[in-house]
Write a protein that binds this DNA or RNA. Sequence first.
DNA 1: GAATTAAATGAACAATGTTCATGAATTGAA
DNA 2: TTCAATTCATGAACATTGTTCATTTAATTC
Lengths: 194, 194
Amino acid sequence: MGKREAAHKLLTEKLLTAAILRVEKSGLEHLRARDITNDAGCALGTLYKCYADLDDLIIHVNSKTLGLMKKALGDAGTDVADPVEALKALAIAYLDFAVENKNLWSAVFKHRLHEGQSTPEWHRMENMALLDLIAKPMSAINTDLDEQQLQVRSRTYFAAVHGIVSISLQDRFISLSGDVLRSELEHFVERLAN
Amino acid sequence: MGKREAAHKLLTEKLLTAAILRVEKSGLEHLRARDITNDAGCALGTLYKCYADLDDLIIHVNSKTLGLMKKALGDAGTDVADPVEALKALAIAYLDFAVENKNLWSAVFKHRLHEGQSTPEWHRMENMALLDLIAKPMSAINTDLDEQQLQVRSRTYFAAVHGIVSISLQDRFISLSGDVLRSELEHFVERLAN
DNA sequence: GAATTAAATGAACAATGTTCATGAATTGAA
DNA sequence: TTCAATTCATGAACATTGTTCATTTAATTC
């Protein structure tokens, strides 16, 4: 790899970490192209040499977050034998991840592409991969479902848990204390899975 | 009421309906101050005489939407005797409302105030009012819960249904056909409420 | 080491929310 | 009715953005 290519790659990386730090600290809505390039120590235009546009960079930020999330959920769910307990552990792990990485986590779900553009396939796949973690314990509970139905059911349950966690981290309704929220989630999964 | 006050009130109204039409047609993300004032037939600055800023106007748009939503859910849930069926009817009505008023509905949940500002109390109350519709059939099922717990549980269930509907109207995961989605929702409520 | 090529640069542009001095129109008293 | 006082709509101007592109700078090639 020549000096040119190496420098470009380094810059691309620097921009990504700068963006991640910014989103982590201040949230997606305060992310500014000029801040990122300042942090990365390069010119404004450089961002558009390394990424198609801000959206593209944000997708890469979210990709990293999904990686972290998948790791966190994987750690939580793997060695729990009882499928219902495994699902509970996954739900709680999801909640914990969201709380501990609030800005990164919400960036994943807040970000919307502009009209006409659509999420790249590789990023869609990263999203879908989350469901695979749920599918295994799920299949142990619902033995009557085929592959296809299991996928759909996993999606439904993930969406439900996501909704509960999501609404809690807004100020739309009364906010629940951490403990109440956790026990609501556990009750919820118990009810759903038994 | 003098001519002055009347004109001001009329303009305030015109701006609101213009904003509603714009959101309805193109979504919150394409709402522009200049478009609204053009539609309403007034100058740009006028918007800031009638509303504090765009956020304030959007909150009023969302307030109208919540009114429509409450009406739609009220119509669906009232005269269903069986509480589980009532909850199902509410969930389906929520889905239908979201589908039929996609842009208005998503505006309610997409809109976030800027740092430092917080949702006005009257608008928070409008949000909370949704939960009251769920609370009645809910109390028939969970007779052991007190007022406080019932409120919390209603919130949890609403959030779950909202999550399912919400994820379906994004392109994050594979999209479900209308029928599959409906039956997933019904299965879901059944499982949760029995 | 010179010529070629490619990439970083940052000034300039377009779009957008918001403000404010100005002017026009309503109001209320003479 | 008339005329000053007042109030409110006006839209030009500003600040902040994302994005582009001609220019400069540096690496690559022969």
